[in-house]
Amino acid sequence: MTPEFARRVARIEENLSQVIRGKADCIHVVLIAMVAGGHTLLEDVPGTGKTTLAKSIARSIDGIFRRIQFTPDLLPADITGSSYYNPREGVFEYREGPVFCNVLLADEINRTSPRTQSALLEVMSENQITVDGKRRDLPQPFFVIATQNPTEFHGTYPLPEAQLDRFMVRVTLGYPSPEEEIEVLYSQNDVHPFDSLKPVLTCKDVLDMQTEVKTVKVDRSIAEYILRIVTAARADARVKLSVSPRGSLALYRTSQARAALAGRAYVLPEDVQALVKPVLAHRITLDTRARYSGITPETVLEEALSAIPVPR
C-alpha cells in the first residue's frame, strides 16, 4: 500500500471521529464498504447517529450529499428524476433526481413501497439509471447509505432479499457508552461538530483508493477460506436462503479493503473473520423454526467460523 493511502484513511477516520463519538469499529466498517465500492445498510433505532454519519462522510470526501426521506407515497421518479415538458422551449427536459450525488442517504428505506425500493436496485448495482429509455451515469464515486429501523413494523415494507443482497455491509451502530454519550452532550453545547467539519479528501481520492484496494493480494488459501465459510453457511440446515456469490465477492472485496485500511498489501484470515458478520449476516434468512428458537444468522456464522480451521 502506498503511504498516501494510509494517510488518507487516517485523515478521514480522524475527521469522522470528531462528529461520531466512539463507534470506531462501525465507522471502520462503513469506510471499508466505501473503499470497496459497496453500499452500507445502517440498521438501528432512531437517534443513534446514522444520518450524521452519512452526512459526515459526504462532507469529508467533498462530495455531493443528497438525502431521500423514504415515505410510503414516494415514487420511483422521485428518486431517479423525470422528464417534464418545457413549454417555452417546446421540448421535454430531464430533471435529475436526488440520486445524482456522491453520497446518497436513503433514510428509513423500509418505509417506502417495494416498487420504489426496487428503483434503487439498478442505481445501487449498476451505478446508472435509465429514464425514458436513456441511460445516464451517476457521478463517481457513488455510495448509498441506507438506514432502517428494525424494531418498528407498522407501515413498513421489509426490504426484499434481492435488495438486501445489494448492500455490501450491514452495520448496527448501537447506543454509545455512557462516557461517549456525555462527550456527545458537551460537544454539541455551542455548535454541532458537523458544522465545523472540513473536507479532507476529494472524490477523486476515493476513486483512487477504490482502485488501489483491488491490488491487495488475496492468497489462494484465503479465497478458499472465504469459500468454505460461505459453503458452510449454505449447507446449514437452519438456513432457508443463504449467501449468494455476490456475497462471497463482497467478502472478498471488503477483506481486501480492510487489509488496505490496515496498511497491508495482503489479506490475512483475520480480515475475513472480522468481516464475516457485517458482510454475510444480512444475506442469510433462517427458517421459521430456527428463528423462533432464538437463533440468529450471526449464531450460524459464529458456529461456522469456529468449526472451520483457519488457513495457517
Binding site: 484470515p269 483475520e270 473473520q273 467460523l305 469456529s306 468449526a307 472451520i308 480451521p309 483457519v310
Partner: peptide, 9 residues
C-alpha cells in the same frame, strides 16, 4: 491454538 481462530487472536 484451536483450529477455528488465528494464532494472533
Amino acid at each position: 491454538c484451536p483450529p477455528g481462530i488465528t494464532w494472533a487472536e
